[in-house]
Design a protein around this nucleic acid. Structure first.
Lengths: 207, 207
DNA sequence: TAAAAAACTACCCGTTTGTGTAGGTGAAAT
DNA sequence: ATTTCACCTACACAAACGGGTAGTTTTTTA
């Protein structure tokens, strides 16, 4: 039996989910709560397997709720269940540890299916959300100045925070050589300091 | 009519997909190709709406295929369709511009459903893949040493690549003051150079 | 095999940086 | 009311850095 809790300010939503879940095979409603604090209170002794939570609760944001919940019970699967899909909120939620992100427009059967999918190691998302997530990985083929293999090695170590000397030790060359490579890297990247280079690598997501 | 092409080394797979697609409503098979080059040749005049491609082709990797294809026709939706799911390959593919990532274990009806979803602005993924993608966003709530507001300002500019002097100009303080703040930032972050600080900010995703 | 590219080392010079020390202001907390 | 904290400035010194020049070896490629 998979236990499901719903945290949502609207009574209408809570009751709807509760009825749906209780009426389905293999799922049972753990509880329904109007805000974050009453949910935490109820989870004091035992937590549900799955929690559906709104992106914005009256007393805290959805991702704050997630962060605090997972701090106590990291194995709970949290699904955002929201009316409005906000680009930034998607990423905040996943960063906080959400397992999925669903629109309230979803059909009842798809909602049940999503809950089961989350329980079975998936990450159910509304198609629109999935597209947002996937496109966030795209770099616009911003192709990187062609660095030589050695330059990549040096740059990689630089981005781990190593100094010229340390990089030299790692690569079995002198620090002079490292600085020589750095000069060429700077030229190709059009920067003029280590921290600029590291910043650019981070921003462009290269390497 | 949505046109679908399949690029896969195995004849068995190509023929299976071709038959499935042609037998379905609203989809038609644009063509089936055993490797990247023959696909590009065929796409010379016109491209299909959707391309299913293996993660590893005989003549190039799946993501190289994607990169080159999208360079010519950015509106094509490419779905990876693969036997083996490799963590790293998922991200490479999405970075290259893949719209979805499917396992060959998928059921025929789910495959058709996925193609339609891709066409309609979604990003179909096998549940396992979705979970990988979503967890990649998680930072383990590694919360950052508490920096003061000013220190955050300085750090932010540093991470944009500015020098002490430039930061000072931006914040209307002397470069000495900037260096003073940097000292304190280093102490709190347990680093001892600008590029280390930038590297840490990038890695931990703070700021 | 010859030419080109990459990798390596070294030295110089002016600037920036890291670190320490020493102090002044104003606002918030006790 | 005193302390704490963030914020600011200044100066000094050694170390590291960025940029230039110059040359050797190794590997790739034509």
């Amino acid at each position: 039996m998979i236990t499901v809790a719903i945290v949502d300010a609207q009574r209408h939503t809570r009751e709807g989910v509760q009825r749906l879940v209780d009426a389905s095979d293999g799922l049972s409603c753990f509880g329904a709560y109007a805000d974050g604090h009453s949910a935490f209170e109820a989870f004091e002794r035992q937590s549900p397997d799955i929690v559906l939570v709104e992106a914005e609760l009256p007393d805290m944001s959805g991702y704050e709720f997630i962060r605090r919940l997972l701090y106590k019970t990291p194995d709970t699967e949290v699904l955002i269940f929201t009316e409005v899909i906000e680009e930034e909120d998607i990423f905040q939620s996943f960063r906080a540890g959400a397992t999925g992100y669903l629109s309230k427009k979803i059909s009842p059967s798809d909602l049940l299916q999503s809950i089961r999918e989350a329980y079975n190691g998936g990450a159910p998302m509304t198609p629109e959300v999935a597209r947002h997530v996937v496109t966030s990985f795209r770099h616009d083929a911003k192709q990187l100045p062609s660095l030589s293999q050695r330059e990549y090695d040096v740059l990689a170590l630089l981005c781990k925070g190593y100094s010229s000397r340390k990089i030299g030790e790692r690569l079995f060359v002198s620090s002079n050589t490292v600085r020589f490579h750095l000069k060429n890297i700077y030229r190709k990247l059009k920067v003029s300091s280590r921290h600029e280079a590291v910043a650019m690598v981070a921003k462009e997501g290269m390497l």
